[in-house]
Design a protein around this nucleic acid. Structure first.
Lengths: 214, 214
DNA sequence: CATAAAAACGGCACTCTGTGCCATAATCTG
DNA sequence: CAGATTATGGCACAGAGTGCCGTTTTTATG
């Protein structure tokens, strides 16, 4: 009946997803407009002091409508994060089957990350909010954890991981953690480049083994 | 001037920490009383429908006072989780220096976990809330992430990890993730025992290496 | 023990988030 | 164009969380 059930796991407050009809294009437009207004205000006054009231006004919609696009104010944050995960999963799926799954996954993450960094967004400010505010940190981690089933599903298609969904989930989650930790350190140090930090985290993840048997 | 700045990293709404004076013993008592009342109500009507109003009333304090003990309603959840992490870190610190750090850490987690399971709490219900409600999932992950600096600090005392705080952070975070994933799977499957699930996750974490060089 | 300082408490008013409801406007379908 | 769907805005409302202040309890000091 409905063509709307697209997004894999968690539902955003955002229903129409097809692009084509006027209605859906308009929806997409307003969505971006709210997002833009929100980030503008976040950058200006911080997350807490940016009221939905004012975000909505700047975006040209009513407060009530805001909540039809985003279930909560915090969802504005998880939105980008989830989209990122979707892209990683897609990129990973495109990697040749012969390639080592872990390395393919790492490349997928790095590849999407580089694209994102070229974008004209406010990546650093956004991450800053994510890491500073414990409230938003939770949101971020929650959004990140939604990558797990998506990545896990792709991982399960690879020969070495087929049939062990628990292991797929775990490995996916571990890579999400490495992703997070690399970001965190990069943000806190304030120096160095993110891809290098990320690669190091991945390598260390793969090297976390136990020399002596139990 | 103030004796209140104690807790390592994130501040709970809970200030006095020394035990001895009447004031502090009373504070501890009221804290537990609120916690008890809260979990009782959560179990009865769920997290969302349990209002702070009613929790406070059942605990015998005012609504305003509730927020002096817990900064937010959700902090009731992260409270136990953080305490758990503290205990793991302590147990880990007690392990002999000669022991392999990873295995020692695993044992510390398993050991505290077993103790917790014997306690007369509502572990399953609590975890249920943590995993179902995306809202609480975020809180849980955020609380879990606060283990990282604590565990990392202990890890850094071990010979093999000294001087590489980035690696310590990462390894600590990876183990937190394994902990989370094991719980998640255990909860979703509804069967099997948690320690076994946990051990399996740890083993798989250690085995996540890359056979072929890049 | 008495008394003053310090801290906890309760109550009140207030802002903000998030939701249900309904009337209106925009869009889609035929 | 007409009717059905869906989006929107406005309103009222409940609950979370905070600032303020007067009162009560605990501690410290003589």
């Amino acid at each position: 009946m409905q063509k709307t059930l697209r997004r894999s796991g968690g539902e955003q407050g955002t229903k129409p997803q097809d692009s084509g009809s006027l209605r859906e294009r308009k929806h997409e437009f307003v969505l971006r407009e709210i997002e833009r207004a929100a980030w503008e205000l976040f950058a200006a006054v911080g997350f807490d002091r940016a009221t939905v009231e004012e975000i909505s006004r700047n975006a040209g919609v009513s407060r009530r409508t805001f909540f039809r696009y985003f279930k909560t104010k915090e969802e504005l944050l998880s939105f980008s994060v989830e989209h990122f995960g979707q892209r990683v999963a897609q990129r990973f799926a495109e990697a040749p089957r012969k390639r080592n799954p872990l390395l393919a996954l790492e490349d997928a993450i790095l590849s999407v990350m580089r694209e994102e960094m070229e974008d004209t967004r406010q990546p650093k400010e956004m991450l800053g909010l994510m890491f500073e505010e414990p409230n938003l940190r939770g949101r971020f981690l929650c959004a990140l954890s939604r990558w797990v089933p998506v990545l896990s599903k792709e991982l399960a298609k690879r020969k070495a991981y087929r049939g062990d969904s628990a292991r797929c989930d775990l490995v996916a989650a571990l890579y999400c953690t490495a992703f997070d930790q690399a970001h965190l350190r990069w943000y806190r140090e304030g120096t160095g480049d993110l891809p290098a930090q990320m690669k190091r985290a991945f390598r260390q993840l793969r090297e976390t083994n136990c020399p002596s048997s139990r």
